[in-house]
Each structure stands twice: as C-alpha cells, then as structure tokens.
Amino acid sequence: MDYEISLLTTMSISVLFALSLNLITGFCGQISLGHATFLGIGAYVTALLGKAGLPFLATLPLSMLLAGAIGAVVGLASLRVRADFLAVTTMGVGFLFVGIIRQQDWLGGELGISGIGGSGLSKTGFMLLALLSTAAVAALCLYIRASWMGRVFNGVAEDEDTMRVLGIDVPRYKLAAFAIGTALAGLAGALYAHHLQFIGPDSFGFVESVTVLSMVVVGGIGSVPGVVIAAALLSALPAWFQFIGDYKLLVYGGLLFLMMRFSPGGMAGLMSRFFNPVQTSAKGER
C-alpha cells in the first residue's frame, strides 16, 4: 500500500497545483510560464519555518501568505504587459527566482534543504490531508467560477477592453486572480516539501512551470474536472510509463503534442465532444 499512498499523494499535490494555475490562466485568461515559482515559495517557507521549530500546520497559512503576496506583485506586471509579453515576463520571474535561490546560502543554495519533515502525520494521514486540501480547492474553484467574481474573470479572459468599458475595475480582479492562484500554489508547495522532504532550486524551474501549464491546457483551459483529470494522469504518467523505459519522455512529449493537435479543447473538449457528438470542433484558419 505504501506505494499507492505515495503515488496518490503526489497526484493530489499536482492536481492542487494545476488548479491554482487554472484559476489564473483558465478563469482569468492571464497566461503564466513561471507558476513553479510560487510552488517554490510555499515549499521554502514551510521548510525554513519548520526547521526553525514552527509546527507544520502553522506554516501552511504563512506559505500561502508569502506566495500570494509575491504573486500579487507579479500580478502587477499583468497590468503593464499582456498576452505573450506577460507569458515571457512570468517566465522571467521563474528564472529570477531560481537564480536567486541558487546563490543564497541561508536558503540552502545549490544544496537545497534536506530533512524536511515532521508533519506529525502518518503517511496515510498526510495523504488524506493532501486529498482533503485538493478537494477543498476544487470546491473553491467551482464556487468562484459560479460567483460574480468568476463571471468577471471570464469577461476579462474573453475581452478585457469591453470589461473596462463596462466600468469593471479590471486591475483589481486580475490582482485577485493572481493573489488567490499563487497562494494556492503556495499551499501545494508546502505539501510538496513535506511529501518529498527535500527541495532544491532545480525542482521549481522552467520545466516545472511548463509541466503545470501543460496539465491545465491538456485538461481543458478553465475546466475544473478536466484539469483535475489531466493533472492526475500526467503526474502519474512517468511512474506508469516505466515499462517503456527509454521512450518515456518521447511518448510524453508526443502525447502532449497530439492532444493539442487533435483535441485543442483538451480533455474537457474531448468529453463534451463525446457527450454532444453533433457539435464539431471549429475549423479554419485564424
């Protein structure tokens, strides 16, 4: 059972992390290529505070707080630059974060931080905590989606300028999306640190940011069930793909590509096509 518990915990944390990005990119339309930064901030906060003697549960809100605060600052960038400029700016934030961590001895530098632990929970208990947090976040996402805020997010994603004309305070909502999404990423990071018990700068780089974005897009941008399924599957894929050995990443990359090529709406698109076969995907060139 240990293996299943460990794998389920990993999957659950990935789902939580993907949902947090979905809030920013899926709901509010603000693309981010540096989301792993916030996973990292959450992880480092809990690791350092844990080492300083703070109990595990007390570090969680602090992880979220710092990740969310820095997330809001990065959100300010989204007020200044849009679309592809924003994508590359957030990517830059990611590289800057890793670059800084690498050189700071008090953050463990290249060595990272080892021997994190003492969540005080058994493996099963920790898995339940991760699953519960993820379920709560999924519920929160569904709630936000249906709320006034969710509708504004959607409006911003669809057509920001019209929303401005309508008198909506667009910057406030964008910042809110960034703050909530990055705080949740901080929570995912805190769980990640206690699950792996070891963190280092390489765990929060560009590759991780790209991985989580692909989970969101493969799931179907904005779709909560789609993202949950995609994140769960994609995070377990390397473990299940052991048998294809040498071709593992090749298959992973290929699947990512084929999914986008043949079902650009992601898994959510696939599902809706399956249930409403009449509706065909839009064709033609931009």
Partner: peptide, 12 residues
C-alpha cells in the same frame, strides 16, 4: 503547448 510537446519529443 503543442510546440512544447513537439520540442520535448524532438529532444528525446
């Protein structure tokens, strides 16, 4: 994302 998938597959 399609492009990223393509890049990973190409690298491998």
């Amino acid at each position: 994302i399609a492009s990223i998938g393509l890049y990973i597959a190409a690298e491998e």
